[in-house]
Nucleic acid binder design. Structure first.
Lengths: 214, 214, 214, 214
DNA sequence: TCTTAATCGAGACGGTACGTCTCGTCTTAAT
DNA sequence: ATTAAGACGAGACGTACCGTCTCGATTAAGA
C-alpha cells in the first residue's frame, strides 16, 4: 500500500547530517538513550525524513557505520588484506589493527550498539552481517585460501572455520570483557590457532599430534 | 537518602512470579518489547515491587536466567565438566550440549537479551559475566588444566586463551549467525584448536610444526 | 517579495476539482478532519495549486460554498425575495425554505464548517459575512422596507433589527440544537415578531400594548 | 476495553492547573492554535493526565468554562433572574449584562471556541448546550412564565420561542458580527419582541394588531 | 512554429502536534 | 507496614499535516 519514496529526490545533505548526528550521539549518550528525535534535532531535520528512509534507529546506525567504515577504508589507504607470504605475521598484523579499532571509541560505540541490536533483531542482524561483517570475513578467507594453496595450511582446511577461530575469540573477549584486549592476546591467538595447543603426548585430536621441531 | 529495602520481609512468591513472567514474556514478545509494566501485570504485582528490588529490566532478566540455569543444573543432574581422560571427547561433548542449549528457545531468548543488554551496559555486563559466564568458563579452565598436567596440552598453555578459542567461535557464530550451529561445527572446532591448522610445510607458528602420526 | 500568481493562466479544471473535493470531503469527514492534503489528493492536484490560490482550507470552503449557493440560485430559478403584498406569508415562505436548506446535508456540512471557522477567525468571518450572509440579509431588509413604506410596519422600524429577529432565532436553534427546526417554528416566529408577545394587560414595553382585533 | 480511571484518586491540583492553563492560552493564542501540549506544559502536567480525563481540547475548554461560569455566579452574588415585576426592564437588564459578558475577552475567547467546536461536533455541542446554555435559558423561561401568569404575556405564549427571540438575535449578531453589540440594540430588541413590529394598518400577523396606547 | 515562462502534478523537506506508550516516582486502600 | 493498584510528570514513539520548496511535464501565449 505505502509506496516507497523517490530516492532520486533524496537530500544528500540531510542524509549525511543524519548519519553524522547518529554517530555523534551514540558516542555521547549510548545506544539505549539514543533517540530518533535527538538525531533529527541535531541534524536539523524533520523526524519524518528519518522515518521515510530508515525503519529503525538501528538501521540508521548501520548505515552510519557503513559510511564510517567506508571512510576508514579510503582514509587509511588500505587496499585489502596484507600478503607478505608470512601468514602468521599477516594475521597478527590484521588482528592487532582490529584490536586498535575496538579500542577507538569512535568505532566502539556504534559497533557495540549494532551488535546489541542485531542480537535481538534478526532482520537487522542479517543486513549487519552481510554488509559489514562478511566483507571482512571474506578477506580473511581469501588470505587463508592463498596460504592453503601454498601448503601453509592443511589441504583440507576449512577456511571459514579458521576465520571464525581468529575473529571469534577476539570478538568474544571484546564483547564479554572477559579479559584485556591486547596485541599479545591476538598474537598468542594466531600462534595457537596455527600450531594447535595439544601437547607432545597428544591424544587430543584423533589422528594428529604436535611436535616441537626446533 | 534512599534506604535499602529490608530483604528479610521480601515476598518470595512475588519474586518468583516476577522472574517467571519476565522469562515468559521475553520469549513471547522479545527483549525490545519487554516492559516492566507488562512483567508486573502478568506477575500480578505492583510495579514498585519490581523497582524496589531490581534496577532495570535487564537485571530482572539476569536474575531470571540465573534461576533458570540453576534449575537446569539440578534438573539434568550435572555434576560438572566430564573428565573421561579423553580431552577432545570431553570438549566435544560439552560444546555439543552448548549448541543444543543455544537451539532451545527457552534459553535462547534470555541469552540473546542479556548479551544485547550487556553489550552496551558495562555494569550489567559485569554481573552477567561474573555470575553466569565465568562459572562456566572456570569449568573449561579446570578441565584444560588437568589435561595440561597430564601432558595432553603444551606445558605453557594459556588455559584461558584455549577456553576462549573454544567458546569464542561458537558464541560468535551463534550471535552473528554467520553459519549453521551444528555438532559437526563444534567437533571440527575442537580438533582444529587442539591440532592447529598449519600445514606440513609449516612456517605459521614460529617454532612449531604439525605432523600426522600413525 | 512573493508575486501574485497570474490568474489568467489559472486552470479552471483544477479550480472546480478543488472546490468539489472540498465540499465532498467536508461532508464525509467533517471540517476538523478536512485536510488540504486530502483535498489535493482527491482533486488530483498538487498541494501547491491550492496554496497558490487560497490562504486556508476555510477560504477554499468559503469559495466552494459561494459556488454552491450560486448554483442553487440558478437551479431554483429564484429571482429574489417574494413580494406578494402579504408580508407575513412572504417571510414564512422564505424562512421555511431556509429551514429546508439547513436540513439538506449538502448545505449543512459546509455551513456549519464556515460558521465554526468564522467564530474564531475574524478575517474569514468578514469575508463569510460579506459575501454570503449580507446579500441574503439585504433581501430581507429590502422586503421589510417595502412593507414599512406600505405601512405594514411601524414607520420607525429598524429593518436590520427585524431581519435579525427573524434570522437570529432560526440560526440559533440550528446552531445550538436547542429544539427542532420545523416550519411550525418559523411560522410562529414570524407571527410573534410581527405581532409581539405582550399580553392585553401589557406593561412590557414602555408605551406599547397589544390588543386582539379579530 | 479501556477501563475508566479511578476518579477518587484524581489530583485536584492538576485538574485546576489544566483548566486555568486552557483558559489562559485560549485567550492568548486563540482556539485554533490552542494545543494540548501547550496546556500540559503550562500546567506543569503530563499530557497523559489530560488525555486520561478529557477526550478533546474542546472538552477541556468546556469544563474550564463551566468552572469559570460557576465562579462568576458566586463572585457576582447573583441569585438568579431579576424579577422586579417590570418584565421589559428585567429582560433589558439581563441582556445588557450578557452584552457586557460577550465584550469581556475573558469570556469571549472560550465562548467563541466552544461555539465553533460545537458547531461541528454534536457530542460536544450536546454537553455544551445541556450544561451551559440550557440552565441560562431556563432562567429566561421561568421569568417569562411568571410574566405570562401575570397576564403580561399572551396566555398561549410559547416561552421557549420568546426566549430564543431574545437570545437568538443577540447571539447571532455576536457570532456573525453583523452589527455593533450595544445596550441600545438589546433594549430595542426587547421592546420589539414584546410589542411586535407590525404597523397600525397591520396585516402581518393573522389576527393581531399593535396599537399605541397612552 | 517555436520558444519561453508560468502553472501544473508530485512529493521531499523542516517542522509541530497528535494521541499512545512506557518510564520511574509517588499516593492510596486494604490486608 | 507492605503490598497491588494505578495516577502522576516526563518525554519518546511513529503518524499525520502543515506550509515551503524543488522538480520535470504540460500548456498556452507571444515572438
Amino acid at each position: 500500500m505505502s509506496k516507497p519514496p523517490d530516492s532520486s529526490r533524496r537530500s544528500e545533505r540531510s542524509r549525511r547530517a543524519i548519519l553524522d548526528s547518529a554517530l555523534a550521539l551514540v558516542g555521547e549518550v549510548g545506544y539505549n538513550k539514543l533517540t530518533i528525535e535527538a538525531i533529527a534535532a541535531r541534524a536539523g531535520v524533520g523526524k519524518q525524513t528519518i522515518y521515510r528512509w530508515w525503519p529503525s534507529k538501528a538501521a540508521v546506525l548501520l548505515d552510519a557505520s557503513l559510511a564510517l567504515s567506508g571512510e576508514a577504508w579510503t582514509e587509511t589507504g588500505w587496499s585489502g588484506f596484507p600478503d607478505t607470504g608470512d601468514l602468521a605475521a599477516d594475521l597478527k598484523s590484521v588482528l592487532r589493527a582490529t584490536v586498535d579499532e575496538f579500542a577507538d571509541p569512535r568505532y566502539e560505540a556504534p559497533a557495540r550498539a549494532l551488535t546489541a541490536a542485531g542480537a535481538t533483531d534478526p532482520e537487522l542482524a542479517a543486513r549487519f552481517t552481510e554488509q559489514l561483517l562478511e566483507p571482512q570475513l571474506a578477506l580473511y578467507e581469501a588470505r587463508l585460501r592463498t596460504a592453503r594453496e601454498a601448503g601453509q595450511l592443511a589441504a583440507d582446511t576449512d577456511v571459514r572455520l579458521v576465520t571464525e577461530m581468529l575473529v571469534g575469540p577476539l570478538t568474544y573477549r571484546w564483547l564479554m570483557r572477559t579479559g584485556p584486549l591486547t596485541h599479545a592476546f591476538t598474537d598468542a591467538l594466531v600462534d595457537s590457532v596455527l600450531g594447535g595447543v595439544a601437547g607432545a603426548t597428544a591424544g587430543g585430536a584423533d589422528d594428529v599430534a604436535k611436535v616441537t621441531v626446533r
